[in-house]
Simulated assay, not measured.
Amino acid sequence: MTRRARSRRIAAGWTTAALCALTLAGCSKGAVTGSAGTEVDTAAKPDTAAGRTPTTRPVKTTPLARLTGAHINIADGQTVGVGMPISVTFDHAIPAGERAEVERQLKVDADVEGSWSWVKDRDLLEGQRVDFRPRAYWTPGTAVTVRAGSGITRRFTVGRSLVATVDVRTHMMRVVKDGQTRNVPITAGAPGMDTWNGTMVVSDKATKVFMNSRTVGYGDAYAGYYYYAVHLTTSGTYLHQNPKANTYAGHQNVTHGCVGLATDGTARKFYDEVIPGDVITVVGSKDTVAVGNGYGDWNADWAQWRAGSALK
């Protein structure tokens, strides 16, 4: 790996940039509704016909000369946080035998040590997503150019650093922004509905999101709009304003899995300063979030991440 554009390849497991429109799923580890309010069955698998005899004819495959059907999660000219991975998804699954050639056609021009890794996205098939991340968080101010074959180019910039750590045991969130630290009272998932542990990266945000407990298996517990919602996982985890935080933030965990902030301006202040790519790490909870459930790439250590590349 050269220092400039050190894009080795790798594969691990993980999800697309998120479905945050004005309607979304419940606040938990379960399913999530799409932008039109229709539920996405995250457990769905391709149909297999019983008794069907598989074909024995050899299938010829050729590498994608222009990476047809590729999509990059970062817009041209966008400014992102220090944790944002470059995520390339495809309209169809890339066969294992073609993935090395696909990686060779993905170029990252940046002064960083990094690697590609094939990620099993929560809502996609194996081989439909490959991510690039640095060994450590991006350095603020880094300019990055991404090229996918000869057809797609994206240029983006890494902005200021914002890393927040939510401790579910102390019911506090430590926000470190460009070296300045402040503590914010929070309420997290109640016992049995615990907030995901581990590192999540902000995929998007919305001033209001409709959340329905039925979509995540919690019956009629809630159905309504929640405000200043920062999207963390495809399964429906948000950090958002929650009236219950006015009473319980800093004292007790009472949510259905999301992280709640008070309505006194606390939630809006955090919402206003957060950008996609900022890092939210939850400690003291259970069950580490999967690499493919949102941008969970940082939950794989560097050796695991590099091992996911098709280029050995």
Rank of each mutant, 00 (worst) to 15 (best):
A75P: 02
C20A: 14
C20K: 09
V32W: 08
A43S: 10
I72L: 14
A31F: 13
A65R: 10
A11R: 03
G30Q: 09
D47C: 11
G34F: 04
A43H: 02
N73F: 00
A50T: 08
S35D: 09
L24D: 08
G51W: 01
G51P: 08
L64F: 10
I10W: 03
G13R: 04
A18T: 06
R52L: 15
T53C: 05
D41Q: 06
D76G: 02
K60V: 10
G69M: 03
A11D: 04
A18D: 00
P63G: 04
A21F: 09
A43C: 05
K29C: 04
T42V: 13
H71I: 01
R52M: 14
G34E: 11
I10Y: 04
A21P: 03
A36H: 14
H71L: 10
L67T: 00
I74T: 03
T56P: 00
L67D: 01
C27R: 13
I72W: 00
A70K: 00
I74Y: 02
D76R: 02
T23V: 15
A65Y: 02
C20Q: 05
T42A: 13
R66T: 14
T62Q: 10
P58S: 09
I10N: 00
P46T: 03
I74Q: 01
T55L: 08
T23H: 11
L22N: 14
A70D: 02
D47A: 14
R57S: 14
R57V: 13
P46K: 01
A43R: 13
R57T: 12
T16K: 07
N73E: 01
K29F: 04
R57Y: 06
A70R: 05
T38A: 12
T56V: 09
T33W: 01
T16L: 07
P58V: 09
G13S: 10
D47L: 12
D47R: 12
A44C: 02
V59D: 07
K60L: 09
T15V: 00
T68D: 12
A70E: 01
V40P: 02
A75C: 01
W14D: 01
A75G: 06
L22Q: 13
T62N: 03
P54A: 14
R66Y: 13
P63D: 05
E39M: 12
A49E: 12
R9G: 09
K60A: 11
A65E: 05
G13I: 06
T55S: 15
A17E: 05
K60C: 04
I72V: 15
T62A: 12
C20W: 03
R66C: 06
K60G: 11
K29Q: 13
T55A: 15
V32A: 11
A21D: 14
P54M: 07
G51S: 08
D41P: 00
C20F: 05
P63R: 08
W14G: 09
A12H: 00
R57A: 15
A44F: 02
T42G: 12
